[in-house]
Design a protein around this nucleic acid. Structure first.
Length: 731
RNA sequence: GCGCGCUUAGCUCAGUUGGUAGAGCAACUCAUUUACACUGAGAAGGUCGGGGGUUCAAGUCCCUCAGCGCGCACCA
């Protein structure tokens, strides 16, 4: 066939590498990622309904993985769809300083490359290193996000640790402190000996391990046997608790026994009755270690028992003689077990599996320790929130329907978490992060947005849990605490929050907490949760397994459009998905198919332009239009319901199996032997249908569609990214 | 212990309010320069995890069992 008047580009296979960076640049230069520019340039009405969403800020700990790529794709689809519907659309980017994660990463590098520890550098110098690392990670992340085609408004980019966000953090802290929601308290906390910091309950990861479960008596004269997996903590025991209904032990309740020598330590053990003790568990008697167990501390509080700390911040013993003093807890455990055996006190030694608490970021084994820390009280009634507690505010936002979670089964998970929620420990003994806005001067404490003016005040050394600043993200990025900021007034509450279900508690719950409390409105109306991207065998991708697929490599090899499609199709909300190169290859082929469809349509309709007022369709084409119209109605409905995985499949199927394999094939016959009317009708139909396919496909495969759009014979074209979604009312 | 999810073709997954099973990939047969080999046509492949129930009708609803996975709690 002759190929007159057709872009020579089409004569070669589609080349994403040549196309994608060029197209992204055109988009960026158009300014259309920014809704203000869209209004200025007249592609969006000033009073159009808004669609706003924040990007879950990636941690500045390195590079993006496929999970980020999935997030970017799903959200870009939402954003481009909204923009093409004419909405005032804002998708706001940013990055997260990720306090502990970033700091420990830099510590590792420092150790490996220079053999130094952070204390060798000092706070200021170490922070310089962290900032440098964070900046480099940031640049990589931004670059990768652009490669994925993300239509983010870079003019509004934010960082959880920049000046504006710091003001928001200090303002929020001050208000919570003023309302008595933030308090400083001496409590049993989760101490991470490896990271040398406290962490919150949610930062604990449980790992199943085998352990020895020892049953023994403190001494030959002691009447009650107890059981434990941690004999070394028993040197800190101050009581034995039994169930009040347990007849075996009633005679001892209230008595105090002195054990002169428990592996070199003198113990005073009082027998108390407490409902928390289960009769059936172990011997039915519990050795109470108030300093090193949350439950025991609670029992101790109820019975006014003394607390005796026997383990320090390095998980080493602080009492006893040379046998255990300064030994690690794991070593002391064996020493005491041996001692019990040799004294004839050990009655039983069993192998059990137990859940061991480890720190999410460092992997360190958590040591419960009593410490003075900052907490958020989740059970205190708040006067200007109708005396509701933070827990109640969080619960009601979802239960009352103001926030809708997709898939809805996660609402149950959310309620369950809130029911078990305890006060949130927000102080961290790390250097990288928002410094706590509290100052001390002898006995005085000052909390304020700014430092006190007089001399002699010393600021709290600790920083805040990274999730404190993330919790403010939907509004700290929009100008809050300035309540008159245009962005804040225009875009808050945001419409959508899309993220992985694994940070439902960490992030989503904390945003709801902060927003309902600080501004009295929900942070977002809909939460869409996606799953984890796994490898083709269903394993979590990780660097150590070596199965991590680098999104950048994949986009280089197959094109971003193909990677995007393969991340969407075959994945429903809330379900994990599996990734394989086969799948991506299939969608690379699809991009090329679309390219060739265009080549055929343009070369067989040469010199004809799309005529939007054309109406003389043949009967056959009218049928095809009806079919197409039904499909678009269906697809639009599914887009509104966030069923992108279904839409992607449907449009793929329609273009390939229906449009290319059937309609184009029969068009060959029409163009060869049909009447002029038939030819004209079919030419318009093909151009019109290709136009609509490009529009529907654009949110999914933005690069190839924008590129094809640029050579379509259509008058008064704008960029495809700001064209209107195909109308659904006309047939 | 409480709760959730999954189990459908060799693999990865769809299957919306119940109407006798679908897609991609892989494998098989054919076509051999066609808009496109990054292709087309065709055929094959499933007692929808097991059992029971409701119904005219169940992959879909209910009960139950099993395997896998996950969350929370416990973890003396």
């Amino acid at each position: 066939m002759q190929e007159p008047n057709i872009d020579p580009k089409l004569l070669k296979p589609y080349d994403p590498k040549e196309t994608e960076d060029r197209i992204y640049k055109i988009w960026e230069e158009s300014g259309f990622f920014n809704p203000d520019v869209c209004i200025e340039k007249g592609v969006t009405d000033k009073d159009a309904t808004t669609f706003s969403m924040v990007l879950p800020p990636p941690n500045v700990t390195g590079t993006l993985h496929l999970g980020h790529a999935a997030t970017l794709t799903i959200e870009d689809i939402m954003t481009r769809f909204a923009r093409m519907q004419g909405k005032r659309t804002l998708w706001l980017p940013g990055t997260d300083h990720a306090a502990i994660a970033t700091q420990s990463k830099v510590e590792k590098i420092l150790e490996k490359e220079e053999g130094k520890r952070k204390t060798d550098l000092g706070r200021e110098e170490f922070l310089k290193r962290v900032n440098k690392f964070a900046q480099e990670s940031h640049d990589t992340i931004i670059n990768q996000s652009k490669k994925m085609g993300a239509s983010l408004d870079w003019s509004r980019e934010a960082f959880t640790l920049d000046e504006k966000r710091n003001l928001a953090v200090r303002t929020a802290f001050k208000k919570m402190y003023g309302d008595g929601l933030i308090y400083r308290g001496h409590r049993i906390v989760n101490w991470d000996p490896k990271g040398q910091t406290v962490i919150s309950d949610d930062e604990i990861v449980y790992e199943e391990r085998k352990a020895k479960f020892y049953t023994f008596k403190y001494s030959k004269d002691f009447p009650i046997s107890i059981s434990t997996t941690r004999p070394e903590t028993k040197v800190g025991d101050t009581a034995v608790a039994v169930n009040p209904k347990d007849e075996r032990y009633t005679q001892y309740i209230g008595k105090t026994f002195t054990i002169e020598d428990f592996c070199g330590v003198k113990l005073e053990i009082k027998v108390v009755a407490d409902d928390a003790v289960e009769k059936e568990f172990g011997t039915g008697a519990l050795g109470v270690t108030p300093a090193h167990s949350q439950i025991d501390a609670e029992i101790a509080m109820r019975h006014n028992l003394p607390t005796k700390q026997v383990i320090n911040e390095f998980a080493k013993m602080t009492v006893g003689d040379e046998r255990i003093l300064n030994k690690k807890t794991t070593e002391a455990r064996l020493v005491i077990a041996e001692w019990l055996k040799s004294e004839g006190l050990l009655e039983k030694e069993e192998e059990v599996t137990q859940n061991i608490s480890t720190a999410e970021r460092t992997g360190g084994i958590i040591e419960p320790l009593p410490k003075l820390q900052w907490f958020i009280n989740v059970n205190k009634p708040i006067a200007d929130r109708n005396n509701k507690t933070l827990k109640e505010l969080m619960l009601e936002a979802v239960r009352g329907g103001e926030i809708n979670i997709i898939p809805d089964r996660f609402e149950k998970v959310y309620y369950n978490w809130i029911e078990n929620l305890r006060d949130w420990c927000i102080s961290r003994q790390i250097w990288y992060g928002h410094r706590i806005p509290v100052w001390y001067k002898s006995e005085e404490i000052y909390c304020g947005v700014e430092a006190p003016k007089e001399d002699g005040w010393i600021q709290d050394e600790d920083t805040l849990d990274t999730w404190f600043s993330s919790g403010l993200w939907t509004f700290s990025t929009l100008g809050w605490p300035d309540l008159n900021a245009t962005d804040f007034k225009t875009y808050h509450p945001t419409n959508m929050l899309e993220t992985g279900y694994d940070i439902l508690f960490f992030w989503i719950a904390r945003m709801i907490l902060m927003s309902t409390y600080l501004i009295g409105e929900v942070p977002f109306k809909t939460v869409y949760l996606h799953g984890i991207v796994r490898d083709s065998q269903g394993r979590k991708m990780s660097k150590s397994l070596g199965n991590a697929m680098d999104p950048l490599d994949l986009t280089q090899k197959y094109g971003a459009d193909a990677v995007r499609m393969s991340l969407i199709i075959g994945t429903g909300p809330g379900n994990d998905s599996k990734m394989s190169e086969d799948k991506i290859r299939a969608y690379k082929n699809y991009a090329n198919k679309l390219w060739n469809i265009t080549r055929f349509v343009l070369s067989s309709t040469e010199n004809i332009k799309l005529d939007s007022s054309f109406n003389d369709y043949s009967d056959k084409d009218k049928e095809l239009i009806k079919e197409r119209h039904d499909l678009i109605v269906e697809i639009t409905k599914e887009m509104d319901e966030y069923k992108f995985y279904i839409v992607g499949e449907k449009i793929y199927h329609y273009t390939w199996s229906r449009f290319a394999d059937v309609i184009l094939e029969e068009s060959k016959e029409i163009f060869k032997n049909g009447t002029n009317e038939e030819k004209e009708s079919r030419a318009q139909f093909l151009l019109d249908t290709l136009t609509k396919i490009l529009k529907i496909l654009h949110p999914f495969m933005p690069f190839v569609t924008e590129e094809i759009w640029s050579i379509m014979p259509i008058d008064n074209k704008k960029l495809l990214m700001v064209e209107r979604w195909p109308e659904t009312e006309r047939s």
